[in-house]
């Protein structure tokens, strides 16, 4: 199964080492992380040494080697968000769920990530839940956001995600 979907990602990119990062982006989007087996296939098909694939996957922040939770909360820690108190938000998650940035809760429900800047500095502190932006966050707003994720579980948030994606598509035409 994994090979089949990888097939479509690799189509037209074989033996083109410079496509490595783009390919890994697509793999990451599909599986939410990059499985080891896929890296071996990518290495073979693109003609990139395995160590180079492993290095690239480790070097760039966008790639995750560990499977991520069903929901991903990203806290922006850019300068603008920092001076407006984004560290409080990390503290909130640490206090509430006991996870630090990069970790996933034990039930696989939530992964906390940090990003250095989302470019939405005017709205800081910014939090992103599964691709949806939340502006001017405070610890209490974040607490209720996490609670709503935990209550609704995966289904609703997935719906919401599908909805925003659909909208974006609509807008592009």
């Amino acid at each position: 199964m994994s090979v089949l979907t990888l097939e479509s990602i690799l189509k037209g990119r074989r033996s083109q080492p410079h496509q490595l990062i783009e390919v890994l982006h697509d793999v990451q989007e599909r599986y939410r992380h990059i499985p080891e087996e896929d890296m071996r296939i990518v290495s073979r098909e693109l003609g990139v040494p395995l160590i180079e694939v492993y290095r690239v996957a480790n070097f760039y922040k966008a790639f995750s080697l560990k499977p991520r939770g069903r929901n991903v909360i990203t806290i922006c820690t850019g300068t603008a968000c920092h001076v407006r108190g984004s560290n409080l938000l990390s503290n909130q998650v640490l206090g509430q769920l006991g996870i630090s940035p990069g970790d996933t809760t034990e039930d696989g429900q939530l992964t906390l990530e940090q990003v250095n800047c989302l470019g939405a500095c005017a709205l800081g502190p910014v939090v992103v839940l599964n691709g949806t932006y939340y502006k001017h966050m405070t610890p209490s707003k974040l607490r209720s956001l996490i609670n709503s994720v935990n209550e609704k579980g995966i289904e609703d948030t997935d719906d919401a995600k599908g909805k925003t994606k659909g909208k974006k598509r609509q807008r592009s035409h």
């Binding site: 410079h18 290095r55 070097f59 922040k61 990003v115």
Partner: peptide, 21 residues
């Protein structure tokens, strides 16, 4: 890009464009 500040540096950016670290 892959999320690396250092890739704003010209030679690092070019390495990244070549599909490297």
């Amino acid at each position: 890009g892959g999320g690396a500040f250092v890739c704003g540096e010209s030679t690092a950016l070019m390495a990244s464009l070549e599909g490297k670290v």
